[in-house]
Design a protein around this nucleic acid. Structure first.
Lengths: 202, 202
DNA sequence: CGGCTTTCTCAACATATGTAAAGGTTTTTC
DNA sequence: GAAAAACCTTTACATATGTTGAGAAAGCCG
C-alpha cells in the first residue's frame, strides 16, 4: 500500500489512477490489486533510475519531475530516446520484457518522484483482469504505435531545423526544463548544430 | 471462410494459425471465430495494398510474396519503413487504429498473396477471447517494442556502412529479393551512397 | 564574494552524404 | 528479339552536419 502524500490535494495513487482512467476505466478490484503493487520512490537530480547493463524488473509512473532515457554511442555521443515528464510511465521496456540487459540509462534531470511497480507482477494482473488487459492494450497502441510514428517519420526525412521547430511546438513546456544539449541529443544532432539552426531561425 | 489452397501441403489458413500459435495457443472457438474473418487476396507486383491518404480497415497476413511500406518525403525521396515478407502481418496500423489517413503506401514488390481481415472485427475478438488478447499483447510487444529497438538505435548512431552490414547480416534472404535502391531507401540513404559504401567494403 | 564548472555560441576546418548527370548493365515489355 | 525502361555505378560538385577549440555567459559551491 502506498503512503498518502498530498499533491494538489491528491495522493500519488489518486494521481496515478486518474491517469490510468484516461485509457480505460477499471473495476474496483482491479484497481485495488494494482494499487497493492505501487511503491513510492524519489530520485534526486542526476540519479539513475535504471543503468545500462541492468536487467530491469520495475517500471515507474512519474508523479513529479523528469527523466531522460539515453545511451552513449560508440563515439561517446549521448543519444536521448525519450523524455518522461509527469504522467508518463518510465521504463526500459524491451529489456524488461526480455529480461535482458538494458541498452539505456534512465536518469533524473530534476528531483523526481515516482510510483514504481514490478512489471512481471503487473503482467499477471493483465492476464487476470480483463479491464487491465484493456488498459495495457490501449497503452501499448497509444504510446508504442500511434505516438511514435510522427517522430520516426520526422527523424528520417526532416532537416535538423524542421525537427527543432517541431519539438518546440510539440513540447513547449519541456523545452523550458531542458538544457539545449538535451534537446540536441534528442534530435540527433550536436549542440553546435542546434546552435546554428537556432541562431538562424531566431 | 477461406478457400483451401495448397501450399507445401497446407492451406493458407493452416499456415496462418501455425504462425499465430508461435505467439500463443488459441482455443478452437477463438480460432474458428478468427478464421471466419479471413479472406484471401492476391496483389500483383506493383499493386498498392494500401495507398497514402486512404483510411485502412484491414490488415493482411502475407502467405507468399513481399510488401514494402513507404512514403515519399518533401524532396520526392522514397523512404521505406518496413518490409513485410511471408509470415508478417502487413498494415498501416497507426492509421487503422486512429481511423485516419495513412501516411504510408503498402505496395507489392513481388506477386503477393495474403489473408486479410477487418481489424475492427479482430479487435472485437480481442475483447471477447482472452487467448486472442494474449496473442495480441505478445504480438504488440514483440514487433512494436522488442524488434524495433535495435534498428532504431542503429538508425540514430551508426554510419550508413554499418547499417548496411547489419541489414545484410539480419536479412540475408530479403537482400536477394530486393533491389539496391529498396535497401537504400530502408537505410535512409541514396542509392549513390549505398553504392559507395558497398563498393568500398566489397 | 571568487573561483570552478557547465552551458552556449561561434569560427575554421573536415567529412559523410546528397545532387545531378552520364554511361553501362540488366530487366521488362511487347 | 528488339526497344524501352529500370537499375547500378561512377564522377564532380554541393551541402548539412560533425569536430575541435576558444571564449563568453550563466550557474554552482565553498
Amino acid at each position: 500500500m502506498t503512503v498518502p502524500q498530498l499533491n494538489t490535494g491528491k495522493t500519488m495513487t489518486d494521481q496515478f489512477f486518474l491517469k490510468i482512467r484516461t485509457y480505460t476505466d477499471l473495476t474496483t478490484e482491479a484497481e485495488t490489486a494494482w494499487a497493492a503493487l505501487l511503491k513510492e520512490k524519489t530520485c534526486h537530480k542526476g540519479d539513475n533510475y535504471i543503468s545500462v547493463g541492468q536487467i530491469p524488473k520495475k517500471v515507474a509512473f512519474v508523479t513529479k519531475g523528469l527523466f531522460s532515457q539515453y545511451y552513449i554511442d560508440d563515439n561517446g555521443e549521448t543519444i536521448i530516446k525519450y523524455f518522461f515528464p509527469e504522467g508518463r510511465i518510465a521504463g526500459s521496456i524491451p529489456a524488461t520484457l526480455t529480461q535482458s540487459e538494458s541498452l539505456f540509462t534512465i536518469t533524473a534531470l530534476e528531483e523526481t518522484t515516482v510510483l514504481e511497480y514490478n512489471f512481471a507482477e503487473f503482467k499477471k494482473l493483465v492476464f487476470t483482469y480483463p479491464d487491465i488487459a484493456r488498459f495495457y492494450i490501449r497503452y501499448l497502441e497509444q504510446h508504442w504505435i500511434i505516438d511514435k510514428e510522427p517522430y520516426e517519420v520526422s527523424l528520417r526525412s526532416d532537416a535538423a531545423k524542421v525537427r527543432y521547430a517541431a519539438f518546440l511546438h510539440k513540447y513547449p513546456d519541456l523545452v523550458k526544463r531542458l538544457k539545449k544539449h538535451h534537446i540536441a541529443a534528442y534530435l540527433g544532432i550536436t549542440p553546435t548544430q542546434l546552435s546554428r539552426v537556432f541562431g538562424y531561425s531566431k
